[in-house]
């Protein structure tokens, strides 16, 4: 019984990390139709930022990783992706190539073997079945979701972002500079992936291919939750995290993946549009 309970914080914290990753993806996919395969490497960049800054302080790594990954996303959007808007398959190949280049760059910079970030002492231990490091990750995700919600619903820039997501052409003819909104979205989405990277250093080693382990699951969250939907991403991420860890607990790692994929395929047969979708008279 204790084993079953122990899986709970593991599943929830993995769900929290998936959520941080999926938030960025769901916005860039929902708003720009961009399938960004290099998003996983922003996680990796965030994790290495934490590795480099571990002597300075763990909390400083959070904004730093946000900035590093965010700027990487911004540069990617400005240099490459914006020339491929409206061509999702080309973008997919392009960003996959960027992803490979970034992984190799990490190998050249930090070496191929994994490195370990030493968790700060105040995150060791825990209360009952809840380890502090996993609690911290969950808190981080909750804070990020609240911040994103407030940004989207309480600021002018967030309002513009929602407008562009709902009707890009109408936003442009309403006077909104959609290119600038896209840049901000890319910066924030990539930055969140960087935060996810810092979170991952608390529960495992850091390597050049760190992002590839999470990017597929994060895309599953996006698809299952519904495009561009905050609520959907939260529920799908937690569901997937829990399903993953319990499937792993009762079987093994590879069978768990099969179970998760079958579950997602079954779910999408029932609800191809995901948990939540834009619904209104205008679209019906």
């Amino acid at each position: 019984m204790e084993g079953v309970l122990n899986q709970l914080p593991i599943g929830l914290s993995i769900g929290a990390v998936l959520l941080l990753i999926a938030l960025g993806l769901t916005f860039t996919f929902g708003q720009m139709g961009v399938i960004n395969m290099a998003h996983g490497e922003f996680i990796m960049a965030g994790a290495y930022t934490a590795y480099l800054l571990q002597s300075v302080g763990f909390l400083i790594a959070l904004p730093a990783a946000f900035g590093v990954a965010g700027v990487m996303g911004l540069v990617l959007e400005r240099l490459l992706i914006r020339h491929f808007y409206g061509r999702p398959l080309d973008t997919l190949l392009l960003t996959w190539g960027v992803s490979l280049v970034l992984q190799q760059a990490a190998r050249d910079l930090f070496g191929a073997p994994n490195v370990q970030v030493v968790s700060p002492t105040w995150l060791r231990g825990g209360v009952g079945i809840l380890p502090y490091n996993r609690l911290f990750i969950m808190a981080l995700a909750v804070l990020s979701v609240v911040a994103i919600w407030a940004y989207l619903h309480r600021t002018g820039q967030g309002r513009r972002m929602r407008a562009v997501m709902q009707n890009r052409r109408l936003a442009a003819t309403s006077g909104i500079n959609t290119g600038r909104v896209d840049q901000v979205t890319f910066f924030i989405g990539s930055g969140l992936a960087g935060i996810a990277g810092v979170a991952l250093t608390l529960i495992g080693p850091v390597g050049p291919t760190l992002g590839t382990y999470y990017i597929v699951d994060a895309f599953l969250v996006v698809v299952a939750g519904g495009l561009g939907q905050l609520k959907g991403a939260v529920l799908a991420a937690l569901g997937l995290g829990l399903l993953n860890s319990y499937a792993e607990f009762w079987s093994d790692a590879s069978l768990a993946k099969v179970i998760v994929f079958v579950a997602i395929i079954g779910f999408l047969q029932l609800r191809p549009q995901g948990l939540f979708v834009l619904r209104s008279r205008a679209l019906s």
Partner: peptide, 21 residues
């Protein structure tokens, strides 16, 4: 085709244009 931003409130539809003007 009387296009709007369907998930934004009427107020937000107006505000988003005002802020961009």
């Amino acid at each position: 085709g009387h296009e709007t931003f369907p998930q934004l409130t009427v107020m937000d539809n107006l505000m988003v244009t005002l802020e961009a003007s």
